[in-house]
Simulated assay, not measured.
Amino acid sequence: MIKNEKIKASEVHLTGIHGEDLGVMPTKEALELAKQLKVDLVCTSLMSSPPPCKLIGAGQAKQEALQEKQQARKREQAPKIKELRLTPHIEDHDLDTKRQQAERMLQGGDAVQLVVKITGKEGAQAKALLESLVKDLSAHGRKQTGIQLSGKQASVQLDPL
């Protein structure tokens, strides 16, 4: 972020404190206006000519830069995969609780791995349970993989939308 006297362009396209367009003006005039209003002149992009600049309160410029860095860091992080374990004979209330947990995880940007533990001939029940959960959570996430039955468990992974 380039501020005040560090802006080397001869002209800037200025935006006022409240977002109003003040047009193209020489950099010196823009700096004088910023000093009169006791704010900073901040260049938002150097890719265009004349570069767009804003009049921003002194503390606000630092705060915006910090927020931008945090957002960029958040976008860089890969979604974590969180696992929820269930059984085919789960009670309705417990199922609702697991569904709400999965919704919260998906809304938070994490992927959810739903795993149903199987003993004996419960494969069909487990698959039906996972299908109903995937259908209920379709507003918050989509299936990355199909439902996989393997040995003692059935699982499916949901990615956030």
Results as ranks from 00 to 15, higher is better:
106 L>Y: 03
159 D>W: 10
65 A>W: 05
139 A>Y: 07
52 P>L: 10
103 E>R: 12
140 H>T: 12
41 L>N: 01
22 L>E: 01
44 T>D: 01
76 E>F: 07
59 G>P: 02
51 P>M: 09
37 L>Q: 14
4 N>S: 13
17 I>K: 06
18 H>V: 13
55 L>D: 03
114 L>S: 01
65 A>C: 05
81 I>R: 01
21 D>I: 04
137 L>N: 01
11 E>S: 00
14 L>N: 02
96 D>S: 12
159 D>T: 13
44 T>C: 08
75 R>I: 10
142 R>Y: 14
117 K>G: 13
123 G>Q: 11
67 Q>P: 01
73 R>V: 07
13 H>T: 05
130 L>H: 03
21 D>Q: 12
87 T>G: 03
49 S>W: 13
39 V>E: 08
31 L>A: 09
31 L>P: 07
41 L>Q: 03
157 Q>R: 14
61 A>R: 03
43 C>N: 04
121 K>A: 09
58 A>S: 11
106 L>V: 05
5 E>A: 07
153 Q>P: 04
129 L>W: 03
52 P>C: 07
10 S>N: 15
23 G>I: 14
35 K>P: 00
13 H>R: 09
24 V>D: 14
142 R>I: 14
101 Q>K: 10
149 L>Y: 08
44 T>P: 02
137 L>H: 05
26 P>Y: 08
75 R>V: 09
53 C>Q: 04
51 P>H: 13
33 L>I: 15
136 D>G: 09
144 Q>G: 13
125 Q>L: 13
19 G>M: 00
44 T>Q: 08
127 K>Q: 12
84 L>Q: 00
106 L>F: 07
137 L>R: 02
5 E>M: 14
37 L>Y: 13
7 I>H: 04
135 K>V: 11
75 R>K: 15
133 L>Y: 08
6 K>M: 14
120 G>D: 09
148 Q>C: 12
89 H>Q: 02
153 Q>L: 11
129 L>E: 02
9 A>T: 06
117 K>M: 12
29 E>Q: 11
25 M>L: 13
127 K>L: 09
150 S>L: 11
33 L>R: 14
42 V>F: 02
17 I>D: 05
126 A>P: 03
74 K>V: 08
48 S>P: 03
60 Q>M: 08
155 S>A: 08
115 V>P: 05
90 I>S: 04
59 G>I: 08
107 Q>V: 10
110 D>L: 02
53 C>A: 12
3 K>C: 06
74 K>M: 10
150 S>V: 00
91 E>H: 15
161 L>F: 09
159 D>R: 01
132 S>K: 15
106 L>C: 03
66 L>D: 13
110 D>W: 02
126 A>F: 03
102 A>W: 01
158 L>W: 02
82 K>E: 09
